[in-house]
Simulated scan of single mutants.
Amino acid sequence: MNFRKTFFVAAFCAAVVFSQARGEAEEKKLFEIKIPLEKGAAVVVTTPDGAEREVGRVNALPTATRWPSYTASAWGLPGTVCASAVNAIHMLVSVEGGKGRTMSVIPQETIAPAAGAGASVIISPKAGESLFGAWAPPVGALVLVEKPDKTAAPLAADNLPKPGDALLITADEFGGTPYMIDIENRPGGRVVAWRRGGCELLARVIRPLGGTGRFEGTLFQRAGAIRANHCGVIDVSTSPRGAVGGFQIIPWDHALKSKEMQNVWTMTQWLVVGAADGRSMMGGSAPLFKNGLVSGPASGERLWDVWSTYGRKSLVLARYGNGKWRRMKEAAGRGDDALKDITELRIYYPFTEEIQKIN
């Protein structure tokens, strides 16, 4: 990045009152997902205008929950979605002994080891579509258990769904969600969120990105799109659907504290970010690790209008060698140097209204 651009970004960010920018947009309900705990029952999405759409069928019911679940699940809020991906939705039931207990929703055919044996509602859609595509709920979405008498309460260890109940997941558009985030791919590089009111320095790059890895879920996502978001990761596919390849952006607390992430410091497939103040933990914090990113519609999927369909499509762009912004080059499999020429990344956040109408 040249000096002129560096000076402009720094000066502009310093001039913005960030609390005002964050407060401009109120939380808005987009749609509600209803998953009955009954084999063969329809999975239904209801939009704010009351319209209902069947988006799948229930094929199997859970017989257990998973504990301990993956490390970053414990950084979520019990009774909410703690991971949203093309191959699974994980919901946090409780945090016990510092470890998360989860229940999942997965497609009939998938690769989702984090779900755990018997701890999932299995539904009919393909991975990357329906609740794992166009109708994916963001991390932080509220999860309720609805009883046959229509009373509902948050998912919890003492309020697990039983046959005859239903899971209700509310997908919101959270207030203060940025339009996009730019990441300078170098040690100390800035992670900047762009909002209507200006920009905010969210974080700094601790360890830059250099390569791609065999992250299994990328099999179900196109290149340059979000494969998964949870309280400790943004997983981006660099391979076409049907091939495996991608990279991950993770918070420094995940890289420091989680035993399964210690390879991060010697490998190139992870981009590690730390809080701008140099002290705060970032796991489970918005907008990087909750309240925003989703996998978005697969090819041919439609939401309720052209803007929601277009705006929820996942998109990650890159600059190679300080060049122009462009779609990411496809790179499948493990390639330790496959992304070494990337100097900046841009992640677009979902929207559902015509840009001029967004407050």
Rank of each mutant, 00 (worst) to 15 (best):
A338I: 06
A331D: 08
P287V: 08
V236G: 02
M328K: 03
A332P: 01
A203H: 00
I226G: 02
M261H: 13
K257R: 15
P297T: 08
A298P: 02
D253W: 01
R326M: 15
S308E: 15
L209Y: 04
M282S: 04
S239Y: 04
N229R: 05
A332I: 03
S299G: 10
E260C: 14
A243Q: 14
H230R: 06
F220R: 00
S295D: 07
G311L: 06
W307C: 04
S280A: 14
K259E: 14
A275G: 13
K259D: 14
W325I: 06
W325N: 09
W265L: 10
S285R: 14
Q269P: 02
V236I: 15
N291I: 01
E200P: 01
Q248V: 14
A298K: 02
Y320N: 06
G321P: 03
M328P: 02
G210V: 03
D305G: 11
A228C: 15
F289L: 07
E301A: 10
W252C: 10
A255R: 03
I206S: 09
Q269D: 14
A225M: 14
M328D: 05
P208D: 11
V205G: 00
W307T: 04
Q262D: 11
S285I: 05
F220K: 03
G300W: 04
P287D: 08
R302G: 00
D235N: 15
M281S: 14
